[in-house]
Write a protein that binds this DNA or RNA. Structure first.
Lengths: 338, 338
DNA sequence: CTTCCTCAGGCAAGCGCTTTCCTGGAGGAC
DNA sequence: GTCCTCCAGGAAAGCGCTTGCCTGAGGAAG
């Protein structure tokens, strides 16, 4: 592996000069030397050792993001936005998947601190777990202590920069829609109970229910883990436990799609027999039959905002950005048959 | 930011001892000192500077992967497999999105070389572009010169470790299915013409056509870019340019889903009026209506194999792993109406 | 009581780069 | 001709860590 010293030797200049030419320092250098050095660089296929550079200079280059799972469309979209802005700023992005394991999340925060990332983005729901949250806050503070920047996506339980989707209002929106259509026996497919995203969305649905003089009893809530198959299973449970159910509100689109599959398997038509709604407005929501009524969250935009905030050095005050949710009516909802 | 020197000072030991304790070296250390050092680490919230470690020691830790776009389900699945194995080996993964820009791909190879990654995985189709391929080979060789490991996914045009999905046989499989059903006017929605994945799959379809005494003339091929919307547009073009078209073979599932939407918009029923097929067997293929007949590629598995090969130090010979494609019959195919 | 061995622990030399500070020569002003 | 200024280029001090090698104390063996 060629080093800067090799380049300098080949070009017949000092290492200092070579360094200045290679990374375009402010210091002036003769054209003559410049070409000699550049030729040596090309000849040796020299690429500066990023670790040595990082160690020697103060400024950081890479940014790190921690998501639950990039292959989940929800995070894939957010990541897309994150990347777009990072790339525009010439930053390399290191992506870490916690796979919804709080401990792994903690480890990754440390890992990224070790890598001295310029910015850290934590995306994804928080957990209802005071011990974990405490540990996380401590690690994040340690990270901030190194001078790095931080933005949280969807975790209002912590302080600092954050971008929060309006989960509760979104739940309210979709809940209102379903109850206003006249549904009385409404089941909910929730995400993992430990996630704040779940409880927030659920709270919104409950608020809507209350306004319509209804409630969502525990037997009408089934917990999935936000993926398609768990949605199918949960829908089946709901149907078994609640004869006469006329609507299912899934707290994300993947589970709604699973519910659709489960319903189809039972020969139930949507929305004729059962109304189904999703949440997030993933691309798939448009393509299933019937197309899903859901709540749109501008995920790419959320990612982009988060990265922009993290990379914007001027901000001194912690910034909190609320991302509004919006109801998207499609074909999966209808009034109940009497 | 606490350094190892701070830890050593606080614990009252030499930096060497502190280092050995912190990263569990083979060298023996008294229990007494160990606890003192560990206490100091906890108190200072010490995390070793990854760059300094990387610089000082020979072995590399992180691995890098370059994909076209993680938010594309195809790559999301591959990435999932890649990550799973990397995590099992205790490696941090740095993901880079080239967004199908060859130049960016080149840049990322350099960037990851600069970061001294232990392994580099290049996922995604190659390009029909000799100049680019040459440049890529040179950069990859420079990377290999640093002692890093490399695995290519889906690029048979380069040598070295690689995992190649059987695109041509897959195209043949789906083509045979459609022609055997009796379709004569068959349109193809291809991916970008510069990608080898496109030409390989298309070649398979053409081979099947030939075997059935048919052909795929240029007017029955529309080029998309592998995403849903381009599939919808391409399907519309195909329909306009070819009255009487009875089948559409899309070279990936996203575009097939787009085609389904375009067909629905025109009031054409699938498969009654038009047969549609996909490729890749993404999760969405099961959930659209009708469910897509497609070609399954075990993407997660491909990612996992690729990372395993890259991380397996014992391999001296370049390894080539062919991943078989498999036809999955669902509801989107039927014989043409007479 | 020597001598030798063993092994915990410390010293210090790098890893590859950036950057401050210094040097020496060229050119201008007097 | 002398002195000053200016600036291109080089020497060298780290950045934070690992690790080969050395030291010295304690114990076993003679």
């Amino acid at each position: 592996m060629a080093t800067l010293a090799d380049v300098a030797r080949l070009a017949g200049v000092s290492q200092a000069t070579a360094s200045r030419i290679v990374n375009g320092s402010a210091k002036l250098v003769t054209e003559e030397l410049r070409t000699r050095v550049l030729r040596a660089v090309a000849e040796l296929q020299y690429v500066p050792n990023a670790h040595a550079q990082q160690l020697a200079r103060a400024r950081r280059s890479a940014v790190g993001i921690i998501v639950h799972d990039v292959s989940d469309p929800y995070f894939a979209e957010i990541t897309r936005g994150l990347q777009r802005v990072a790339t525009a700023h010439g930053r390399l992005v290191m992506i870490c998947n916690s796979y919804r394991d709080p401990d792994r999340e903690l480890e990754y925060v440390e890992l990224l601190r070790a890598h001295q990332v310029a910015a850290l983005i934590l995306a994804g729901s928080g957990y209802h777990d005071a011990a974990f949250t405490g540990a996380l806050v401590r690690k994040l503070e340690a990270y901030l202590g190194t001078g790095g920047r931080l933005t949280l996506i969807g975790r209002h339980e912590l302080t600092g920069n954050c971008v929060v989707p309006e989960n509760e209002p979104g739940g309210y929106l979709v809940g209102s829609e379903v109850f206003a259509l006249g549904h009385r026996r409404v089941g909910v497919i929730a995400g993992p109970a430990v996630l704040t995203t779940t409880s927030d969305r659920l709270a919104g649905v409950r608020r809507a229910a209350r306004e319509h003089g209804r409630a969502v009893p525990a037997r009408r809530i089934a917990y999935g883990n936000f993926d398609r198959d768990s949605g199918a299973t949960a829908a089946a449970h709901l149907l078994d436990a609640n004869p006469g159910l006329t609507a299912i509100i899934a707290l994300n689109d993947s589970m709604a799609v699973g519910a659709l599959a489960a319903l189809r398997a039972r020969g139930l038509a949507v929305p004729r027999d059962v109304t189904v709604t999703g949440f997030d407005d993933m691309p798939v929501a448009r393509d299933v039959t019937p197309a899903l009524t859901t709540v749109r969250l501008p995920l790419v935009e959320m990612g982009a905002r988060a990265m922009a905030i993290a990379l914007d050095e001027t901000g001194d005050e912690p910034r909190v950005e609320r991302i509004p949710a919006e109801l998207v009516r499609r074909a999966s909802t209808a009034p109940p048959r009497r």
